[in-house]
């Protein structure tokens, strides 16, 4: 039987891997190709690589590097960062990427989602939303590339994105990012109740029981960064991934 997916998410910054806390303090982790090779050997369910500076700096995806990643991935690979044209998506798919993840380019206009899903199928088009709590504890859409919150209802935004053809929603809780103190279950529940497509929950996983709680709250998959690249209280870099038997035991089927 199928189990929910557990997905390492790697953050790319100027060609190197970093891990952030609440979207700041990027700590250098290492060489991406090396890390991807290790994750491949550990037989991860899927892998996600997000370039966190591409859109901010107005750069296109680093196609050469991504092709190198894809050559090391014998599991599905999702790439996000700097994608704003159909031609870029085509090049990414041709180089061996299975899914692409959109954010900055679609915050104001979802037509790119429609054009991409018509051509490549919804299953390969993900959108990611970053959500930050305001001082009243209300979740607001946040744009990291613009460094500000947006005043539109996040739930109707993801619903519109699904109507436009998004196949999965990456739901990232900014306040939980890198903290390894548990995921935002209330947020996950709301998102799962709002759309029919899979929710990939991200932000805060620090243990398998955190992942289990997210799945129980309605996530179809859980992505995590710090949990898979840090070890111990001093955040020493060590790449790990639970054994299949362990995932099966915790998440059941």
């Amino acid at each position: 039987m199928i189990h929910k997916r557990v997905i390492p998410c790697l953050l790319l910054r100027q060609g190197g891997l970093v891990k952030t806390r609440k979207f700041s303090e990027p700590q250098y982790i290492g060489d991406p190709v090396n890390a991807i090779r290790i994750f491949n050997d550990k037989e991860v369910d899927e892998l996600m690589v997000l370039d966190i500076t591409a859109s901010k700096e107005g750069n296109a995806p680093d196609f050469g590097l991504i092709e190198e990643f894809a050559g090391e991935c014998f599991m599905p690979l999702t790439y996000g960062g700097g994608i704003c044209e159909v031609a870029q998506a085509r090049q990414l798919f041709a180089s061996g990427v299975e899914k692409i993840c959109l954010q900055t380019a679609i915050l104001d206009d979802l037509s790119l989602v429609s054009r991409l899903s018509d051509q490549f199928g919804s299953q390969s088009i993900l959108i990611s939303v970053d959500l930050k709590k305001n001082r009243f504890g209300k979740h607001q859409l946040y744009s990291a590339s613009r460094g500000k919150t947006l005043f539109k209802d996040w739930r109707s935004f993801i619903q519109q994105a699904v109507l436009a053809g998004a196949g999965e929603i990456v739901l990232n809780a900014v306040d939980r990012d890198g903290m390894m103190e548990g995921m935002d279950l209330e947020l996950i529940e709301k998102a799962a109740a709002s759309v029919s497509v899979p929710i990939i929950a991200m932000g805060g996983a620090g243990s398998m029981s955190d992942i289990k709680a997210a799945v129980d709250a309605g996530a179809s998959a859980v992505a995590a960064g710090a949990f898979f690249v840090f070890h111990g209280p001093h955040r020493a870099v060590l790449i790990t991934y639970p054994r299949y038997e362990q995932i099966k035991e915790v998440l059941g089927s």
Binding site: R5, D45, S196, S220
Partner: peptide, 10 residues
Amino acid sequence: FKIPHMGWNT
């Protein structure tokens, strides 16, 4: 159970 069937299965 969502459609598509997506993920690892035996």
